[in-house]
Design a protein around this nucleic acid. Sequence first.
DNA 1: CCTACCGATCGGTAGG
DNA 2: CCTACCGATCGGTAGG
Lengths: 225, 225
Amino acid sequence: MTGVTRPPKKTALDHGRRTTIDFESETVCRILDAAESIFAENCYAGTRMDEIAAVAGVNKATIYYHIGGKEKLYDVVLTRHFTHFANRLERELADCADPVEGLRGVVRIHAEEFIRNNNAPRTIAHELAGGSRRITPELVAAYARIHGVTARFVAEGMASGRLRPVNPAVLQVVLAGSLLVNTINAPFRSQLAATLDPGQPPMPTLPDMAAFLEDVVIAALTTMP
Amino acid sequence: MTGVTRPPKKTALDHGRRTTIDFESETVCRILDAAESIFAENCYAGTRMDEIAAVAGVNKATIYYHIGGKEKLYDVVLTRHFTHFANRLERELADCADPVEGLRGVVRIHAEEFIRNNNAPRTIAHELAGGSRRITPELVAAYARIHGVTARFVAEGMASGRLRPVNPAVLQVVLAGSLLVNTINAPFRSQLAATLDPGQPPMPTLPDMAAFLEDVVIAALTTMP
DNA sequence: CCTACCGATCGGTAGG
DNA sequence: CCTACCGATCGGTAGG
């Protein structure tokens, strides 16, 4: 013994359980991206840790080392997405003083994010359909921030007379819900289009949906200037 | 051997595979209802045949006897629902000559059916999110009938000038999609409501959503008389 | 319709 | 001593 008291070793493990996740690690990023895509395809219950490991190109034990078990991995994937989404909405619309432009921005950002990455919304659809049993309070808090952006524009618009009275939660479901459904039903749309008459209007893309929501739904709530 | 040539026994089995399903059987009905609720809760991949048997109150082998394997059972559950839905829409709205009243009827019937049985819509949400890999052509055809009701009212309304131009597929996603999302997110809504300020407007019920879709969305598409 | 099982595969963890 | 893994296998359970 040297008699020198050393500081406690820095470790990411506490009683065999990881306390922090290194989001800077490229391995962690590959695992989370792989998990997100397989949770989207097969739902929580249908997803196998082996498949996530195979897609991520790592040994399965590496997932347990870096992140944790299946439930923890699921929670981290969802939290990462909701946090990113809420951050972007708040950042890009914080300075928007016009409630109508703000709601249009909400639609635009939802559409852009769903186009950029449809795996997270698909996983969320599974989670909602399954009864939201695996939603943590932190996840609800993150979604409350997303809901809060819409609620703020509705409240300001109603106060200033720019918007007709509307329940912001109803509007949020119509705007985000329509875009969510048109995101997850893409393969089904293709199957349906093949059975319809060629003369029928084409199946809607996400920008088509966004345009309708802005030009019809939001416009209908806007008072004449 | 008696030497008497008997006719082939009437059987529902052909090379060990069932060719017809007796939908009048109470056992079959219990199996399908149990399967519908568990597919809704756990998605196709997460559903265990043992659990369906337990909820239905039958031995697991009975499911294979009456209906077939897991994929067949899933297909029968979805087909039963889509067929019922399409039948009701066509029956109740066949005589409706007013396109605006017709679209309001589409919203009302969707809402009523989703309230009556939310298990089928939840299973469909799982199926869409998972990429619609298990949708059969018969199922697409059944949905095409549902889509056709909305498309007919839109076409008639645009022809007569009662409705502004709109892609019927866009409108169908906004109407049915909003109601679908507000059906499957019920447990999540409760969790979200608990975190919001008590002064906030209440989380929307399905009738709230239906009222918005009729009074704002459909109204916005309606021309002045 | 049930009992008695099977090939395989599940999420998670051992030692090195 | 530590970190970041790997090859192999654990006790149980899935669909059939």
